[in-house]
Write a protein that binds this DNA or RNA. Structure first.
Lengths: 254, 254
DNA sequence: CGTGCCAGGTGCCAT
DNA sequence: ATGGCACTTGGCACG
């Protein structure tokens, strides 16, 4: 890991130089300071003066975090281009991108603390209990859903999106299956119905729609019944954690 | 602002003490270090060793950020309870919550840099181009949608969610309006249809459904026509930015 | 790039 | 707590 540099209560000029250098060297940067934030783009926003932590990542991601909440109060996504200058004794940190065109302007009135980091990390997250795992599980053991069911295709395309699983039951009916990893409401029913509509428009007959999820709200259950669809309760599976070594770790071992 | 404290390459014991103190004093904390992350809860996840920045907020929010991407690779939401201890010469930082029950465990093998902050910030973001602003705009000037339209109610309840705007046209038809701040696909059409279904189940006649958005995908347009609904193009309004002074700023002036 | 969907979505609000 | 939904959703996969 490269050296970590920190400035405490630097002047605006020093802050600007520090940020410029961090951007050039592709470092991850945190800036604690009193700032106001202006955003113009997909929406327009203004955040008055306050003390926050700004994070600038090497990929252009910019995050402004307040002392509470998971989500940043203002941000700019990866791919944004940062720039910084001193103006009226304030540090003006801009992060811009095109398509869509948007600009985040952080005006730092007072820098309290700023640090630049050089992080090495090639690891990837492995996750369980995902919808994709339900898909694999059912493809392998269709009898979980129903005896005699055959899965023909996963992710089958329609004009309105992809069907999670498409199959045929023991009676020869077409079966459209929509999977959800957690409790569902009416909009999951509509998603299923949309795929059925697509095939009915195409002239298909004998189509069954099955919504699969751990649970369902009462309103969604009513709508399932009204539209002659079916719901089956199923929890997402928990597979063994794969603690695969990543490229970075492999390199570290050389 | 309270004092900002920083430790560089502290021992596990020093790190643990530092974190404990920051939690007790309700400070915002950042920890740069080589760590692995385990998550058990709504899903199960494991992130192998790598260098990351962990942020611990006074409200219990915990964020693990890699050097790229907007989203944290692992996290815990506000309301989680953090705890920390030294074990096998490693720092084990846990963040737990109930309902749902979930635990995030960050095992720090090496602390590179850690800082605690005491931030003062009562400011709130004002945002333009929101759906709620389209709602107000149309309520005030219904002729934007159609001459002779009267808006009767906003957020009218149905069994399947709330209707953005409910009104009546010059012919006496009931009009259900669904607003979207950006380009819509088929699922917005279904959302509108769902509200119409609700009133049709109730026996209402003469119901029109109007989807209002800046633009629409071809598939959604087709579905609008198939279901005899209507689409009207409208951009979300940009109102004047309100740079209202917040309580914190008011206090600062005393 | 646009189209569509999953996500440990988060956050907000109403019952 | 549950329900339903907007969001600068972000992220991914595919045409």
């Amino acid at each position: 890991m490269g050296k970590i540099n920190t400035l405490e209560k630097p002047t605006p000029e020093k802050t600007t130089r520090f940020i410029k250098n961090a951007i050039k060297k592709s470092k991850l940067l945190t800036i604690a300071g009193k700032c106001e934030v202006d955003y113009q783009g997909r929406a327009d926003g203004y955040l008055p003066l306050g003390e926050r932590i700004t994070i600038l990542k090497p990929d252009g991601t910019t995050l402004v975090h307040q002392k509470n909440n998971s989500d940043p109060i203002n941000w700019q996504p990866p791919g944004s281009r940062p720039s910084v200058k001193t103006q009226n004794k304030k540090v003006e940190l801009k992060s811009e991108r095109t398509s869509p065109n948007e600009t985040l302007t952080i005006t730092i009135h007072e820098t309290l603390h700023t640090t630049s980091y050089n992080l090495t990390d090639g690891a990837q997250l492995t996750l369980n209990k995902q919808e994709s795992q339900m898909q694999k599980q059912i493809t392998k053991n269709p009898e979980i859903i129903e005896e005699g069911l055959r899965i023909i295709e996963a992710e089958r395309k329609t004009g309105y999106g992809r069907i999670d699983l498409f199959g045929r039951d023991s009676q020869g009916n077409n079966v459209i299956i929509e999977l959800k990893r957690k409790r569902v409401g009416p909009k999951a029913v509509d998603q299923l119905q949309r795929y059925i509509d697509y095939y009915q428009e195409k002239g298909y007959k004998n189509i069954r729609g099955i919504l699969v999820s751990p649970s369902i709200t009462p309103n969604a259950q009513k709508r399932i019944e009204d539209q002659k669809l079916e719901h089956i309760k199923l929890e997402p599976p928990k597979t063994k954690p794969q603690r695969i070594k990543t490229l970075d770790q492999f390199k570290n071992q050389q």
